[in-house]
Design a protein around this nucleic acid. Structure first.
Lengths: 259, 259
DNA sequence: CTCCCATAAATCGTCAACGATATTTGCCTT
DNA sequence: AAGGCAAATATCGTTGACGATTTATGGGAG
């Protein structure tokens, strides 16, 4: 898939998936980001520039630059004379991010109504159907994937470049929140019902409905997160099977001592 | 664990926790940002690392890191093997930023209603009154200043740290837009009327009104920008007086105090 | 035995230097 | 003379090294 032609003429030979037009720094930043999102680097952990440089087969310069970029991206913070630390995302900040995502998604929906095409609508419908199927099959990973594509589709087609630029950044920050993907089974159907109503609003061209539904969908996600946090961690509800609650992603924080 | 004996360092007190504490890099980034906002570096211009380094009395390393940070801040873009270029903000992107600001300001208003205090309300009222006075006196600079404080007050007190972090970044990006501060005289009163109604909604604790008014205020600003752009640059409309249209623009801030 | 201070190790922030790539200039060919 | 190719310049990306500061370690005093 070629990315739609932007406006740069000197962008040739699709380099890497990162898409950043810079240098190896983008690759290094991506790898650090992966280290973080994969859980190898947990919030609050210090980033050893020399070690990372050696691991990446590069020098400290690019690592430093990547960290500086990630700092403004909100993934790490820099402390004077002590280096870079992985940003810790507490519950408060996670909820704050949900608010921002709601605001952005709302705007995306509002803008998208005016310019959505049939093919994009079809793609959205497909994603929703796939999520329904995944929810039925209890395939959390598939659900998670199609959920992301659904949101990404809406955001990336809304036509607001800055919003497109901002959305994944918030998503990544949110992924720093440890118990991110603790999803209750029933919530999947709820969430997808919201997805479906969003698509229906888009089909009708109902701007106000799409706007409101998009906002409320994210805020519902915020509520769902709160529910999963206040609710007991494992199935005390039915006790039928641990499968009713899936921890899609590593709730692993085996050992973490800092400060 | 040891008592901090000699802590007589006269650094900027109480800023370390914010993450701003890094090194001279922050200072370099600030200076580059100032170079951009002051107009010495125009959109599309290339950033000569060596020259800047020499001008700042530092080396290329910090300059590079600062540029990398500014890249993720949206002020510059990096092109492989060609360096950093000042980001060009066209009309389309400026309008996109207005949409984002509207979404964020809307959320700020919604959140602020629940937690605003009397002192903050008083501060807002003071800003509005000052803006009215400035509008009467046709003092564009004062109006601009109090306008900024008004928005900043609302944003910074909304309680959403991520929003507080994001708002000034969008503001700075918007400042890259060339004819940013082309303001029609009558628009000042309109804008301040919106300000006043926002404050009134906040006083009443009317959440829905505050939310809507905040959003529409920014969108009105977007419309005002469009009007100033589509309208002829100097008063050919009424021809009454050139004073009816003020170009605050070239005003290029006498003193841009870095926060 | 505990606490405190001096010393040692580790790591960061910064710098100057080296190869690599883009841009410019000048010469040669048609 | 115009266009294209090749050398020359300028600038970038990266590297390794050097102080500066923080953290860990060990010994001595109370």
């Amino acid at each position: 898939m070629k990315t739609p032609n932007q406006h740069t003429k000197d962008n040739e030979a699709g380099e890497e998936a990162a898409g950043k037009t810079s240098t190896g720094v983008a690759s290094v930043a991506a790898r650090i980001e992966h280290l973080i999102s994969s859980g190898e680097l947990v919030g609050g952990d210090r980033i050893n520039e020399s070690a990372l440089a050696q691991e990446f087969g590069t020098s400290r310069g690019p690592v430093r630059e990547a960290c500086r970029a990630l700092e403004h991206a909100g993934l790490v913070r820099s402390v004077m004379n002590r280096g870079f630390f992985v940003q810790e995302i507490g519950l408060k900040e996670a909820l704050d991010i949900y608010e921002l995502r709601a605001a952005l998604f709302r705007t995306a929906g509002r803008l998208l109504v005016e310019r959505i095409s049939q093919t994009e609508l079809a793609a959205l419908r497909h994603a929703v159907d796939a999520m329904d199927a995944a929810a039925e099959a209890n395939d959390m990973h598939a659900f998670y994937t199609f959920n992301e594509t659904f949101h990404t589709l809406i955001v990336e087609q809304c036509g607001n470049s800055k919003l497109v630029e901002l959305w994944p950044r918030l998503q990544t920050q949110l992924n720093l929140f440890r118990r991110r993907s603790l999803v209750v089974r029933g919530a999947l159907h709820d969430a997808n019902a919201e997805h479906r109503s969003i698509v229906e609003a888009l089909e009708r061209g109902d701007a106000t409905a799409a706007t409101l539904l998009c906002e409320r969908h994210v805020l519902s996600g915020k509520t769902r997160l709160l529910n999963t946090l206040t609710a007991p961690p494992l199935g005390t509800r039915h006790g039928r099977s641990a499968a009713s609650i899936e921890t899609l992603s590593a709730v692993q924080d085996p050992e973490k001592d800092d400060d």
